[in-house]
Design a protein around this nucleic acid. Sequence first.
RNA 1: GCCGCGGUAGCUCAGUGGUAGAGCGCGUCAUUGGUAAUGACGAGGCCGAGAGUUCAAUUCUCUCUCGUGGCACCA
Length: 674
Amino acid sequence: MTQLLKISLPDGSVREMEPGSSPADVAAAIGPGLAKAALAARVDGEVRDLNRPFDSDAELALITARDEADALELVRHDYAHLLAEAVQTLFPGTQITFGPATSDGFYYDVMAPASRDPFSSEDLPAIEEKMRELIKADKPLRREAWSRADLIAKWEADGEAFKAEWAKELPEGEELTVYWSGDDWLDMCRGPHLASTGKLDPDAFKLTRIAGAYWRGDQSNPQLTRIYGTGWLNKKQLKQHLHNLEEAAKRDHRKLGREMDLFHLQEEAHGSVFWHPKGYMIWRELEAYMRRKMDATGYREIKTPQLMDVRQWEQSGHWGKYAENMFAVPDMVPQVDEDGDGPAKPTVEKDADWMAIKPMNCPAHVIVFKQGITSYRDLPIRLGEMGCCHRNEPHGALHGLMRVRQFTQDDAHIFCTEEQVVEEVRAFCELANSVYKDFGFTYHVKLALRPEKRFGSEADWDKAEQELRDAVAEAGMANDEYGWEELPGEGAFYAPKLEWHLTDAIGRTWQVGTIQGDRVLPDRLDATYVGEDGGRHRPVMLHRAIFGSYERFIGILIEHFAGRLPVWLAPVQAVVAPIVSDIDGYASEVEAKLKAAGIRVESDLRNEKINYKVREHSLAKVPHLFVVGKREAEEGTVAIRTLGEKEQRVMPLDEAVVMLKQAATPPDLAEQTA
RNA sequence: GCCGCGGUAGCUCAGUGGUAGAGCGCGUCAUUGGUAAUGACGAGGCCGAGAGUUCAAUUCUCUCUCGUGGCACCA
């Protein structure tokens, strides 16, 4: 007599099942409702197919649509397979490669048959339709174990070069699995999958776009066509997601930047920003804020050259590694003809010396550090700079304010002894925290570890990584609350880095802040200090930034606040709008009083109706609108309409000035007066 | 840099092998109106750049450029 399997359920009960039975059988035994609702099973913590028999006694939790994270992952993976099957059914000869789930759906990378052009968005409706047909057909999805040799043979026979290549690299001897869709299509896959295609909702997915992607993510490999889709458990979720996308598009900083007249970009300086008065006001407020923060925490601000001899960049190692992304200029006077019209492309003299526009501030800061002789008593030395840098970014990378060719960092370098590193990094964690909190961001801290290509000894990397780890632990941030995580291979070539990833109002994350513990550059540029023992020692150099770059940070703020910036950052903090022109005099008086209080205020004396003015300044996202009519002028009051609030408040002018002044105080200054 | 899509008025976009249209915005005039669009009239375009096909190109083809969605990159 065979022994029954003991299957423990989440409620603590235990069911005895025949050997060979599967989670589906358990579900059926519990009830027909659950049998229908079950999508997959968690067996001893591992997500598995519903029909895959138990290997032994096990803990079982059935996954239904209520277990949303697991369920979404499953259906998205299934949609991806369905996509591949649909494409191959419609276009025989198409090679398939990979198709994982993503954060909002799925994609599949395919190679169109040589006989036709790569797929385009025009093909999407037909593919979608075919996917729906496959769902309706309710094809069972069946797991099957294959040997590696059989798999390779199968892919080679089918002309699936990519799949064959991949199969050859899979470990010998390990059980490999394929999934059949019905009896006529299969893909190599670890699984798990739903029991059949009919479990998917034909109205809960949408193919969204087509893009190129390299085979195995490597630029030197062939380029495949990636078909993206968004996939959900039901139609309602899909609709909600599409709605969210629209909402995100509304807060696009490029759109708001134009509408709010903050900045513009144009061809002649692509990748560099033309800041308009209103946009630059945000910048000035941020810069003033950051200066106060850095002044208060022991930094000293410097300003270093934009242009340095290329040899300096060779010595630092940047020229060798990043020359193609640097802007170099010959140190010569361009030839100009007699009319003063120089040739559009001046010829460069053969023996001209080359200068490079700085792509970063670090070497210049080391140079400043090296002036004179530094004693250990002077350390740590914290040198800050609002450093304007240029990098010749790949064209495809440029994006509004988020990725630009000219940017200004809130940069600083801390030169300190080895003993001081952990405390300096810990203090930085604290500083960064106070800044991000002031803007209402939550964030995650991550540690990017040594990359494959790197400078410096293993011992130094061991030390540098451990210091950062220790510092975060001391700051109390090495835990789940701060999303603490280590990222192997993601560090810079000269140092491991801590990264701050902000989460914005609609849940997107942005990497902004960083601190990096560098022993390479001080060595390459021969920075030293005199120690207690009278000998020369290498300082450790900490590279750090909190905003990252002003351009990008402003872009993030615009999107985070959907343009409705906090009063202290709003370019125009209040508009005074008289209802009739008789009141212009009083409006000007109100404006003058607010101005005297340091408020950025404008008055709108145009010959327009109040409705029009209210609408316009609301759309312009002015935080406070001061409406004044005959009544207010007589009583010496203002009717305040605050952006985002329905009710207006009428209050005496003097009171309003105090109120607004308080609302417009930057958060770091508000703390002190509180 | 690679793949796909795009570039028409300040903005959002329509349109056509015979050198252009709307709405908003802008200007002028009238209107002085209590909280999200008052009306009338008017100005405004090398249809991204260059080359080709054609009697004729904003329209078709090619190259370039910029933007855009991805990929790759991100010191």
